[in-house]
Simulated scan of single mutants.
Amino acid sequence: MRLTALPAFDDNLVWCLIDDTGRAIVVDPGDATPVLDAARDGLVPSAVLLTHHHHDHIGGVPALLDRWPELPVFAPDDVRIEHATQRVGDAARIEAGGVRFDVMFVPGHTRSHVAFVGAGSLFCGDTLFSLGCGRLFEGTAAQMHASLARLAALDDATRVCCGHEYTESNAAFALAVEPDNPALHARAAEVRMLRAQGRLTLPSTIASERACNPFLRCDAAAVRDRIATRLGHAPSDDVETFAELRRWKDGFRS
């Protein structure tokens, strides 16, 4: 199946897995407009996957259901998400649009956030970003760290399809954390080139994120040393390292 991302709003991405007939699994359509525009070129949604309740990820669902009333909508068990036809939770295995997905419960950004893994791709919403991670709006640092550790354990080649194009700004922070990481420098250079050409930096891969993303590298000596400098003492564990990284990022300006 062909993987593509439809830009929405300022930096959202509506991911689509499209088969040879144009039938598409649509992920997190916060805005229906790019999906409806693609439909004029032959795209036909076959299922919708929703990772969490934020409006910029679910707001387009009513318009899509107006156009395709029988469209199945898979979503976490959260009353803030209307229009779901099937609720999903951790370790569920679903079939959507002819593709099998494993569901992972990944709280931290929100309390009910899930991710979908299928067709060699990870649809992770706002939990994992390339070179970054989501803010802790409802969860704890321990929850988010555990969620990211689960995602980092996926196969190296898994394509990371996150909900926003944040990679360039995330790279600036990652370089502040690990200025001597050669893999990160290579990724940052690639990101600058892609953005200068008006291209997306996504999908990334799990292998790339493990090598470059500081939020997946809380056990790396260089990351722990940087956090120790900020804290004034060695972090007690990886969760404390992660928590301070997230606080640092929340106030970071490049």
Rank of each mutant, 00 (worst) to 15 (best):
W15P: 00
A32H: 00
D37N: 10
D37F: 05
V48I: 15
T51P: 01
H52I: 06
H55W: 15
I58N: 13
L64T: 09
V73K: 03
D77W: 04
D78W: 01
V79S: 12
V79Y: 07
I81K: 03
T85C: 09
R93V: 15
G97F: 04
D102S: 11
V103R: 09
M104A: 06
F105I: 00
G108M: 12
G108D: 07
V117Y: 10
G118M: 12
A119W: 01
G125A: 11
D126V: 01
L128A: 03
F129H: 08
S130P: 00
G134D: 06
F137Q: 07
E138A: 13
G139Y: 02
T140H: 01
Q143L: 12
L148T: 11
A152G: 13
D155F: 00
D156Q: 11
E165L: 10
E168Y: 02
N170D: 15
A171E: 10
A188F: 02
V191L: 03
L194Y: 01
L194G: 00
L194K: 01
R199S: 08
T205L: 06
E209S: 01
A211Y: 00
P214G: 14
L216F: 09
R226I: 10
A228K: 02
L231C: 09
P235Y: 09
T241R: 08
R246D: 07
R247S: 08
W248N: 12
